[in-house]
Design a binder for these strands. Sequence first.
DNA 1: ATCTATTTATGACCCAGGTCAGTTTTTCTG
DNA 2: CAGAAAAACTGACCTGGGTCATAAATAGAT
Lengths: 222, 222
Amino acid sequence: MTKVTKKKAVKKGERARTPVSEAGTRERNKLDKRERIATAAWEVFSREGFEASSTNAIAERAGVAKGTLFLYAADKDDLLLLVMHDRLARATDDAFATIAAKSPIDEQVAHVFAALYELYVSQPRGLGTAFVRAVATSRGPNADRVQALTQALLSRLSALVRDACERGELVDAPPMPAAYNLFAAYFMVLFGWLAGTSNSVAEMRASVHGLVALQLRAFRPR
Amino acid sequence: MTKVTKKKAVKKGERARTPVSEAGTRERNKLDKRERIATAAWEVFSREGFEASSTNAIAERAGVAKGTLFLYAADKDDLLLLVMHDRLARATDDAFATIAAKSPIDEQVAHVFAALYELYVSQPRGLGTAFVRAVATSRGPNADRVQALTQALLSRLSALVRDACERGELVDAPPMPAAYNLFAAYFMVLFGWLAGTSNSVAEMRASVHGLVALQLRAFRPR
DNA sequence: ATCTATTTATGACCCAGGTCAGTTTTTCTG
DNA sequence: CAGAAAAACTGACCTGGGTCATAAATAGAT
């Protein structure tokens, strides 16, 4: 199927690319296919859970052959990263957009972390577990994109720290190393959730807030 | 094979267990088999790497059927945990045994962490990566044993913090939460190594030492 | 010692992830 | 508008992790 029959019919002398809306059949098809695959993967993953989802089912639902999946993702893990990337990016953006500018920094940081925990906890059937594992081990192209998200998060955290310094709430805090430590606490609590320690966002938020507040004591004006 | 033919020949009235050296044929066989499997798995994993190792090859080398492997480990990941548990425990014990009692606490902590990094880095072909992934996701019995190791490490780290408080190097440091944060930094750097950020133990030690020292500023006497 | 129950071991089998030689689609060139 | 080159797609196929009905070994009872 996929009876596309894309019309080309370009005037001969002209470039094959119509400058306005046409950007090359190949590229368009590729983007379209990536979109279909991502959608299908999300639908199947979220209904069946990661382990129970077969790449066959995803391919079928996306209307492509199984082999095509592996042109867009290195393996099943990488497929999950492809799907999660956008949701993660959106959740992060939302979290930073809704920071209360006049809250103390430990609240601000906890706010961001809680939003991310929300994303994981709301996923069905251990998608979160699979995702963290995928981040840790996948070498595919989508892994790089997710790594970039993490870098961006670190950078934004360090900006929060810098802001707190400028408004005098903190003193002498090196933004980037401090951000690393904050993120480490975030990750720690996330891992605890994977292992079954805590199971509500509220608990996780409380845990990470405690750790964050403790860390920030290093930079409190005395 | 395993032509055990264990003599039992107990006096009828007496208990079947000879109290000294006999502990039941069944239990002995089981321990023996576990040992053979662990050894075989280590040999194959370390020669071929985790991915390239087949459970078939491990079973063959251990002299058991493939199905038997999965009586001793939930899956291939859990098999890796079975193998790594002892090495991890030994490395941790060694590290704490060789702490210089009069070093500052940040050095002590870095010493322990560096020893663990050493273990990972010295593993061939991404066994470390596979191990961390297995810890994150495996639900098998060996996963629990490794979790217990982590708990023990946290407890020992908190003891280091308490000692530092008692000798006046730190002030007002809640041992367990502080240990959590320290461990988080350790884990962060380990993850960075998995992702390819740093690749020598020296680099990792330097990174984690920086983070640890920063955290401990929260508890320095002023 | 013999018989039954229970635990442990086996390996043929199933199934899903991932590959790749061959095919189709798009682009580029004359 | 060929016709060739390059890129994208396909699905039969292979591989290896994990299962499970069956068999062997062990413990307990008589």
